[in-house]
Design a protein around this nucleic acid. Sequence first.
DNA 1: GTAATAGTGTCTCTCAGACAGTATGTC
DNA 2: GACATACTGTCTGAGAGACACTATTAC
Lengths: 219, 219
Amino acid sequence: MERRPITTVDVVLLTLQTGQLAVGLAPRTTDPFKGRSALPGGYLHVDRDQDALQAARRVLQEKTGIKAPYLEQLYTFAGASRDPRGWSVSISYYALVPLSTLEPENAAAMTFVPVDEIGQLPFDHSSIIDTAVRRLRDKSAYSALPCYLLPSRFTLAELQATYEQVMGEKLDKSSFRRKLSELDFLEAVRGEVRSGAHRPAQLYRMRKAKNLAVFDKTM
Amino acid sequence: MERRPITTVDVVLLTLQTGQLAVGLAPRTTDPFKGRSALPGGYLHVDRDQDALQAARRVLQEKTGIKAPYLEQLYTFAGASRDPRGWSVSISYYALVPLSTLEPENAAAMTFVPVDEIGQLPFDHSSIIDTAVRRLRDKSAYSALPCYLLPSRFTLAELQATYEQVMGEKLDKSSFRRKLSELDFLEAVRGEVRSGAHRPAQLYRMRKAKNLAVFDKTM
DNA sequence: GTAATAGTGTCTCTCAGACAGTATGTC
DNA sequence: GACATACTGTCTGAGAGACACTATTAC
């Protein structure tokens, strides 16, 4: 029988922290690079995991307590030299969560590092993060992805700020709202938000759709 | 030590055949589903493959003789029940080739089946193919991908027909050419092509660019 | 009233689709 | 000459960016 590579699942946990896109890192508890900060990850358990997505969910739940974030397969990094233990396969996922769901003690052990201040990380975790950030930026330009970085209710101003932070460019308020209403993946919620001395804003939530809203691109 | 899943690499070989997008299938030579048509694939060889991409290249070369096609990682299908041998991971790739590079005896053992006439296949190979076709269609709308389905020299009419066949819709000649010249990833080649009683067409080839030309999408 | 943010209306310029026109070959 | 396909020019309508305007709250 053929020799089999090590198979792991790693998760890039992305969130917005003080207006910056940040990644969740956790100190490694086991031996290669023990103690160093790295992406939350773990072995695939052929006896407990039904498939790779469930493995990713389990890893995330174990390390952060988060139950149902947006979670999507990112890429598979595989090779002879990315892990000192030998030939390894990392099926990597990325998750999007609002910072507010992370408050409790679950996330106590985690650090959140802005994506452009990440130094050297064990394995090829830096490239994995790069890939995740690129994927998020790409998809944000034509999908509702950034909504998952916000709590379930939000104002249009908050949503616009989120898009701007993710994509790194200013958007025009009027055009942004026009596009949103055409795309029609939001619905208004009764209720208000107030901050200071100004008019309150309408709250919105994502319309329940089985699929992620994706806008069209053209040739 | 943890039990490790089986790890394989499968390749979705796509080409255009008589105006239709078709997938290359080969009869399986080993036991699960021996003799049945399936995607070309094989075990990852930890002693011979440096990484997953090289494994995919090796598999494709061994089964079809093709050396340097467009080859990109597609998705990783992994789970307990997709393979009768047990928990398995398939790192899948998709390749684009012009039919003309396939003529020799290499491809003798292969069958090409139009993508919408594929019946039941072993494992989850049907879903893998669906995923590949969806990926190609998506990316074709905003990239130069379809070029890889043509020989290195082609006319603009051939290129337009290729885009149309891949995306399944008619394009306007004038708009198509305007877009191409703005995007500027083609260059004219001295030489002509002739067919019947009509004006000969200019031949073009892709400009050498390290990256795949990708057009922009907007929010 | 002022300040501050929420939300809308409108103008203009660009660009993609539609389609007609011209060019250059074979017969 | 006719015919077939290659290639180009122009008109028009939809949509995005820019920006100004109105609305509603706290003080």
